[in-house]
């Protein structure tokens, strides 16, 4: 009986352990200029967390208001569970000319890239859940990172008023339009990540966050 309650120590692969080790000294009080954000977007076969799969992860790193093109991340994943309905949105065919990797390898590379960065995405819950489900399938725990949602933050820039009917969800297209970001490569993971990164920077400026503001103040927003 006691044995049943005792935590079974599961052995995780090395890449997970090294990912996890970054969170030992997590500090939410560091100024924003020293925070590395990973702005990401995933393309999936559909919107069902159980049946659908990630086809691509695209991300850029952002630190101190700078986006480093050299540190962008773009991986195409070989998926057997393929839902033909989503092809039209994303334009990723099962047999594209790009090099594709297995889901396990993609996760391994992504975690090595991600480290303890703060995840930024548009409607983060969807992307993070998709990644978490994939981790789960591979016998791994969920992501440990702090997350920020540009959809949520964008709404904070607006005076929400019932008369203006602006208490609603904003798509990445809406956000880009309102923030004057020219839309390019919409519906490719890396392209959307890039748009999200630009939107994120513009939103921070509108919310009057300074490079010295703490990460905590942004997460609590």
């Amino acid at each position: 009986m006691r044995k049943w309650f005792k935590k079974t120590k599961i052995e995780y692969p090395t890449f997970w352990n090294s990912y996890k080790s970054y969170f030992d000294k997590e500090n939410l009080n560091i100024p924003l200029k020293d925070v590395t954000f990973v702005v990401l977007d995933t393309e999936t076969t559909g919107f069902n967390y159980t049946h659908d799969r990630m086809l691509c992860i695209g991300a850029v790193k952002l630190r101190g208001n700078l986006i480093d093109v050299g540190s962008s991340f773009e991986l195409y994943i070989d998926q057997t569970a393929f839902n033909p309905d989503s092809v039209e949105i994303h334009g990723i065919m099962k047999n594209t000319q790009f090099e594709k990797v297995s889901e396990t390898k993609a996760l391994r590379e992504f975690l090595a890239y991600l480290k303890d960065s703060v995840i930024v995405a548009h409607h983060t819950y969807f992307d993070v859940t998709m990644i978490n489900r994939a981790l789960e399938r591979n016998g791994l725990p969920y992501l440990l990172n702090q997350t920020l949602d540009t959809g949520h933050l964008f709404k904070k820039t607006k005076a929400i008023n019932r008369l203006l009917q602006n208490d609603r969800g904003y798509s990445l297209d809406d956000v880009c339009k309102e923030l004057n970001i020219p839309i390019k490569d919409r519906h490719t993971a890396a392209g959307d990540a890039m748009l999200t990164a630009q939107a994120f920077l513009k939103i921070l400026a509108r919310l009057k966050f300074k490079p010295a503001s703490s990460l905590k103040s942004l997460i609590r927003k």
Partner: peptide, 10 residues
Amino acid sequence: MKNTIADRVY
């Protein structure tokens, strides 16, 4: 290796 962002910058 495809790099959409670098392509756009290009």
